[in-house]
């Protein structure tokens, strides 16, 4: 099957750029899996994981914290606020960050805007943690660009 181009970028760096077979992302409307020749789509990204398959066996797992995704038939661009590869996330530290976010959410929420901000932070940390655990458990068969 034909592959499509996938780019995952954050303001700080280009995290991922390669030809892939399929990509699963979580949007605010739910999880979707994108295959080549997808109908043009622009969607809001929810904090969560991005699972990319290169072919039958190689895959790559990443955590993103929201942003925008633009899908065209032969390319897909993820404009993420922050993004990390699963193997780069330190599980212990992610857990710590999540706890901190949770604590802050409990104690320091004074107004709606702040609450929204901390909830977003919390969601982001949850997503990172989820990705880190999944990576450990499944031992994602890292694809070409990650294990070199």
């Amino acid at each position: 099957m034909k592959n499509f181009k996938l780019k995952i970028v954050t303001p700080e760096k280009v995290l991922f750029e390669d030809e892939v077979l399929q990509a699963s992302i979580s949007t605010t409307m739910g999880q979707i899996t994108v295959l080549p020749n997808h109908i043009p789509l622009v969607s809001q990204l929810a904090p969560g994981e991005v699972l990319v398959r290169f072919n039958g066996t190689d895959e790559s797992l990443m955590a993103v914290s929201g942003g925008i995704v633009e899908i065209l038939p032969d390319q897909m661009v993820i404009l993420a606020d922050t993004a990390e590869r699963a193997e780069d996330i330190d599980e212990a530290r992610a857990e710590e960050a999540r706890k901190k976010a949770e604590e802050v959410l409990k104690t320091k929420t004074t107004d709606a805007e702040q609450f929204a901000m901390f909830t977003a932070l919390m969601e982001k940390e949850m997503a990172r943690l989820r990705v880190a655990r999944k990576y450990k458990k499944r031992g994602v068969r890292t694809g070409r660009p990650t294990n070199q």
Partner: peptide, 23 residues
């Protein structure tokens, strides 16, 4: 993008733009 007749926005155009343009 002129060739694409359809362009889907999720959840809807307004929300996507509201999230995207400040960015």
């Amino acid at each position: 993008v002129d060739s694409f007749a359809e362009f889907i926005f999720e959840p809807d155009t307004r929300q996507v733009l509201d999230a995207f343009l400040p960015r």
